[in-house]
């Protein structure tokens, strides 16, 4: 991959992030209501002086531009996203970091399983088009693809947690349990993780499989596949070295787009299973009008989308020599 390609991708990602930071500022300043009202919202009969003092303390008396904007940019650049209104004034960065872990665990693992399973299933059914596994896999994929997360999650919850009682119904670990060691804790988390993870993986596997199937079918009709067969290579080799690398190209794009939407999907899954991640945090922040946290979540999400696209571009560059320049 050429250095120029890398530099161009990085620069475009950086510019996008800067624009997002600016938009984030504008968006929240355009919202109805004023911050001091929310800050003082729970105290009845506030005098004018207190409001003025609060405005001054939070820097709201200064003009939006340039003072507030510059202060915002400088703080954001240093990783300071302000303080949460709700969580006893904790820094937003701390709150986000605390919730990021469980979300990454759930969706990182879920994506990984869905990618591996979906691509493998799709590649196989595309290769054996019209076979038994193709018909079964395609039908199942379509059903899974069209089922929303929360429905899938609730079905799993009803069957395996409430009904059969095999798995816990909510949370990331057993509340109040004292662990005998790290292994014990991992086992407990894994136990809680099983159903939400299954929801995420099943919800994603369908679309990856459908995409990979059609991509493989299309690739197999290419002339270079005929060339590979003419070379007398075994079908397995033709598939592995010629069809799959080319068929993966469109899959990479879809996966990257999906990675960006991890938290959008997280909201429903996490709420269904009460998983303490960014999704539940977003819902909580929205209902309690915790704007600094929301602003932080927005920033994190959009940066996530940009980074996912950057990763896609770079992966594409590795897979396809034609885009490297």
């Amino acid at each position: 991959m050429s250095l120029r390609y890398l530099a161009r991708r990085l620069a475009s990602a950086a510019i996008t992030i800067l624009l997002i930071v600016i938009l984030n500022f504008v968006l929240f300043r355009m919202m109805p209501g004023s911050p001091e009202r929310i800050l003082l919202g729970r105290i009845p009969n506030v005098s004018g002086e207190v409001v003025a003092a609060t405005r001054e303390r939070w820097g709201l008396d200064k003009p939006l531009f340039p003072d507030q904007f510059v202060a915002y940019l400088a703080a954001t650049a240093q990783g300071d996203l302000g303080f949460s209104y709700g969580a006893r004034g904790r820094p937003v960065t701390d709150v986000l970091l605390q919730k990021l872990g469980p979300t990454l665990l759930l969706f990182g693992l879920g994506e990984l399983i869905a990618i591996v399973l979906g691509l493998a299933l799709g590649a196989y059914s595309g290769w054996r088009r019209g076979g038994v596994l193709d018909h079964l896999g395609n039908g199942l994929s379509l059903i899974l693809y069209s089922t929303p997360y929360f429905l899938l999650g609730m079905a799993l919850l009803l069957i395996f947690a409430t009904g059969l009682g095999w798995f816990p119904t909510f949370g990331i670990d057993t509340v109040g349990r004292v662990y005998s060691g790290p292994l014990d804790q991992i086992a407990d988390i894994g136990f809680h993780l099983a159903l939400p993870l299954a929801t995420v993986a099943l919800g994603l596997v369908g679309q990856y499989s459908i995409l990979m199937r059609s991509s493989i079918v299309e690739t197999l009709s290419e002339d270079y596949i005929t060339t590979a067969r003419a070379k007398g290579l075994t079908e397995g080799r033709v598939l592995r070295t010629h069809a799959i690398p080319n068929a993966l190209l469109p899959a990479v794009t879809l996966i990257a787009i999906n990675l960006g939407y991890v938290v959008a999907g997280a909201i429903t899954v996490e709420v269904v299973f009460n998983w303490p991640g960014l999704g539940t945090l977003t819902v909580d922040a929205l209902s309690s009008r915790d704007f600094p946290v929301l602003q932080g979540v927005f920033l994190l999400l959009s940066v996530g989308v940009v980074l996912a696209n950057l990763v896609a571009d770079l992966t594409y560059g590795i897979l396809d020599p034609r885009v490297r320049t």
Partner: peptide, 11 residues
């Protein structure tokens, strides 16, 4: 093959 652009694997 005819048209080596398509008959050669692009990657």
């Amino acid at each position: 093959f005819q048209g080596a652009m398509n008959a050669l694997n692009p990657v």
